[in-house]
């Protein structure tokens, strides 16, 4: 643990921003005060979703053990009126992903997800776990089957296991979005859309059209929805 120094490290007045970035790799932030509590918190899910295996340092990861306690803290803090989950993920550990998704969906704090860039593979259950899901117009979501890349499936049990994992993901997505199960399965096993794989890439509005996501929008759309959900919760019985 580090001890906080008193009154040190105040940035020098009049140092141009560009110079600061060049020398320290840091950026000046707008001046405060930031005393008042912000009603909505923001959780970014970026890179690989890391679960049981620590990924090599080159990977940018979202770690299970960072995210889960934060969700517990948010759920318990009455001052936090909502949570915006921003996703830009390539997927990752199925069990860690499903754990985050289950946590989000069982929170009483209103949750809105915003997919920016990409919400692929296990990112899809996390995106639909929110009370309201928003996808930006240019964001993509890849729906494809679970598989062990580079491994030959040798015994039927391996296949059965993968199939069970697959069912868990499908069931979760179907339960938490408007997408019909046959549609989801068809998209997952579609051939001819991905270069070297089966599956489907959904871009922005397509994800809404198939019923996976609720709305196309951006940060203001997501925050407006969060404010509405928070207002409903305040007004309703507890």
């Amino acid at each position: 643990m580090f001890e906080q120094p008193q009154g040190e490290r105040a940035p020098a007045k009049g140092v141009p921003t560009l110079q600061t970035i060049k020398e320290l790799g840091q950026m000046a932030t707008p001046a405060g005060p930031w005393g008042e509590e912000m009603p909505f918190h923001c959780l970014t899910i970026i890179g690989q979703i890391e679960g049981h295996i620590v990924l090599p340092p080159r990977n940018k990861t979202t770690k299970y053990e960072h995210v889960i306690p934060q969700l517990v803290a948010i759920e318990q803090n009455p001052k936090i009126k909502g949570l915006l989950v921003v996703l830009n993920t390539v997927g990752g550990d199925i069990e860690a992903g499903l754990a985050i998704a289950e946590m989000l969906t069982t929170m009483t704090t209103p949750v809105v997800s915003l997919v920016l860039g990409g919400g692929h593979s296990i990112g899809a259950p996390i995106a639909v776990a929110a009370d309201h899901s928003v996808i930006s117009a240019t964001a993509t979501m890849t729906i494809h089957p679970i598989r062990l890349s580079g491994l030959v499936i040798g015994v039927p049990q391996t296949y059965e296991y993968l199939d069970k994992m697959q069912e868990r993901v499908i069931r979760f997505i179907v339960q938490h979005s408007r997408v019909a199960e046959p549609v989801l399965r068809e998209m997952m096993f579609r051939t001819g859309e991905l270069v070297r794989d089966v599956g489907t890439v959904l871009v922005g509005a397509e994800a809404v059209r198939v019923g996976l996501m609720d709305e196309v929008g951006g940060v203001s759309t997501a925050l407006t929805r969060l404010a509405q959900l928070a207002a409903q919760r305040e007004g309703g019985p507890h």
Partner: peptide, 25 residues
């Protein structure tokens, strides 16, 4: 920064790249 509180991302003393001085206790 590993926080969900948006205010923490605006604090100049923890901006990525900042060198923090302290003692490991």
């Amino acid at each position: 920064v590993l926080s969900t509180d948006p205010r923490h991302y605006l604090e100049p003393h923890v901006q990525p790249g900042t060198i923090i001085h302290g003692q490991i206790v």
